[in-house]
């Protein structure tokens, strides 16, 4: 069972790469664009710190950790859950009909089988920068902090996965929410900064309702040693609840699916 799914994933990933290479110019353009965005933003943060030393109590190095953790979670989700971006089209063009009649989980096909190799190329500079920033962190943070950072980063990716599953469910249910995933992307924009900068209500929303804080700010805070154990437990529990709820929503949406006409 797992072996068959592994083979399906490999075959689909391989097909995605071939399809991307069929449009070299377009694909290359998007790659350059994404690198540009990363670079611009980093340059922006550095430029800001030419005029000030701290922001909401954080140093430039702290801000870099927040920004890079955001990119790590965000890009990993984009690489592996790319299929969601085509979810509405898969439903309206009828590809989803084929997913449903074949002996392979339709959620698996919809969400996880389009791999974006362009983003693999964009995550490399992020990893490199994380290496540079980590090297500048004060020595002796202890292995525990790094382990917690890794755990919470994966936890964040888990929450991202739940959100992607939820969006896939919406596409199946309504067949028209073309841009739901773009809302997620835009709201994710708020995660580029530590959530502490947001006003009271916004901060609570980002921690409890649309848990971008938990996804990207918490791992960074854990690394900087300013996340309490209670919030750590909350983060892990939230991920579990989100995954269960989104899966339930997905199953219900498929049950109500009305295949597009003709």
């Amino acid at each position: 069972m797992i072996r068959r799914y592994w083979r399906i994933w490999i075959q689909m990933a391989q097909m995605s790469l071939q399809a991307q290479l069929a449009y070299p110019l377009g694909s290359f353009g998007f790659l350059i664009g994404k690198l540009m965005r990363l670079f611009f933003f980093f340059a922006f943060v550095i430029a800001i710190f030419r005029h000030t030393d701290t922001m909401a109590g954080y140093s430039l190095l702290d801000m870099a950790v927040f920004f890079l953790t955001f990119n790590l979670v965000d890009m990993t989700a984009q690489i592996f859950f790319r299929g969601i971006y085509g979810a509405r089209r898969a439903v309206s063009d009828g590809d989803f009909d084929f997913y449903l009649i074949q002996p392979c989980s339709p959620l698996f096909r919809m969400a996880f089988t389009t791999v974006d190799f362009l983003d693999v190329a964009t995550i490399l500079p992020v990893l490199l920068m994380i290496g540079i920033v980590f090297a500048r962190l004060p020595a002796g943070l202890g292995l525990g902090r790094y382990a917690l950072y890794t755990l919470l980063t994966f936890n964040g990716i888990g929450i991202a996965m739940a959100i992607h599953i939820f969006v896939a469910g919406l596409a199946v249910r309504t067949q028209e929410l073309e841009n739901t995933i773009w809302i997620y992307r835009d709201i994710m924009f708020m995660g580029k900064f530590p959530v502490d900068i947001y006003g009271g209500a916004a901060r609570w929303v980002l921690t409890l309702v649309i848990p971008i804080a938990v996804m990207v700010t918490f791992p960074a805070k854990a690394l900087l040693g300013i996340l309490s154990p209670a919030w750590t437990v909350y983060a892990l529990a939230l991920c579990a609840v989100f995954l269960a709820a989104s899966l339930g929503f997905w199953l219900d949406s498929v049950k109500r699916y009305t295949s597009s006409s003709s």
């Binding site: 110019l25 377009g26 290359f28 353009g29 998007f30 790659l31 664009g33 611009f40």
Partner: peptide
């Protein structure tokens, strides 16, 4: 397929 260039341009 100038989607790529357009994306870069807009960004």
């Amino acid at each position: 397929e100038s989607g790529g260039p357009l994306f870069c341009f807009e960004l």
